[in-house]
Write a protein that binds this DNA or RNA. Structure first.
Lengths: 195, 195
DNA sequence: GTCTATAGAAAGATAGAC
DNA sequence: GTCTATCTTTCTATAGAC
């Protein structure tokens, strides 16, 4: 087989990240080898080290990029003024954004254990910022008496867990459309917070 | 160091399982070595193979035992007749049972990927049986007009995800007592299903 | 930028002594 | 029932050719 020549750094980099995301989501970070990732991309294992200093940094970059994209996407999301409108926007946004990139979500949620301490702190900070978005919406709603909530933080954790659960069972082309899932979840959340 | 003598199979077996559960919950199945488990128990790696034929079977046994215990505990749980009573019993039971054994829960939820196909099917069957318990409660409640639900299966998935999320943030001796968490969650669920 | 080849470490599992 | 010792495999990461 002829050896490939020439520069592909603009192409290979993204392909490595995508293949790594897919493999790590399927099998877990510790179970995936650099050789497997390289094979999925069509290069030799050694070539991966042109794109990442080591396996740990590859994982960290995947998780950080996902969470930064999540926060940026929420910032760009159109949302109304009153708390109920914002809560609906958040609920629908969360479901949609997460269903669009199941591999990245899975990795970001499941591989915290495999981060080295320094990296763990950085990722946790990003996760907490996202939780803070929802807490702020709920607290403002409770203040304005739009919501009836004994504890905003706890409600935020409950709502995020519930919304994130969609990724574990939703299948494109299944019994329910994404729009219908969004509406049903929003209705449950709306009632749960007493809006 | 003097070599230990005598039989300890009644003691060592459970200690291996407990140590494995803890280590796998912390670091993930693929990242934990048989040598680490052995060291935590205070034996050599080879001795583990008196208690399990291989690492995969150890994982499978841990997950199966946890889920069988879960199903048996629900069977033994006192629960009323009407759907709302049963839903409250289920909600409180789920939180309590899961908070009591965080390591086993974590392993059972996170290590599905590391099961070989045959074992995966067996564990999925047990998981589905537990989900079926909640689906049945919700369907009966919807039938009797105790609950207002567009989709019982979807509501079941949402409720289980929400309840399971407690394990990710609850800390013994923290801001909220377990009883208070149970009550707040039950109130959110009660309103979400329109009871 | 990618390859081949390999150094060096560590894994799962087994054999045989005690 | 447990130990020590080891076989065999496989891993991450690097070196040097092209």
């Amino acid at each position: 087989m002829a050896r490939k020549t020439g520069s592909h750094s603009q192409i290979t980099g993204p392909r490595i990240r995508k293949a790594a995301l897919k493999l790590i989501a399927r099998h877990g970070f510790a179970a995936v080898t650099m050789r497997q990732i390289a094979a999925a991309v069509g290069v030799q294992a050694g070539a991966l080290y042109l794109y990442t200093p080591d396996k740990q940094t590859l994982l960290f970059d995947l998780m950080r990029d996902h969470l930064e994209e999540l926060l940026a996407a929420w910032e760009a999301e159109p949302k109304g003024d009153d708390p109920a409108e914002q809560l609906e926007a958040f609920s629908r946004f969360h479901i949609r954004f997460h269903l669009e990139r199941p591999d990245a979500v899975f990795v970001a949620n499941m591989e915290l254990r495999n981060l080295e301490p320094e990296n763990f702190v950085a990722i946790e900070d990003l996760r907490k910022r996202y939780e803070g978005v929802l807490v702020a919406i709920l607290e403002r709603g409770a203040l304005h008496r739009d919501f009836t909530l004994p504890d905003s933080r706890l409600a935020a954790m409950a709502i995020i867990a519930m919304l994130s659960g969609v990724n574990t069972w939703y299948r494109e082309g299944g019994r329910l459309s994404r729009e219908r899932v969004e509406r049903i979840y929003w209705n449950m959340i709306r009632r749960a917070v007493g809006a």
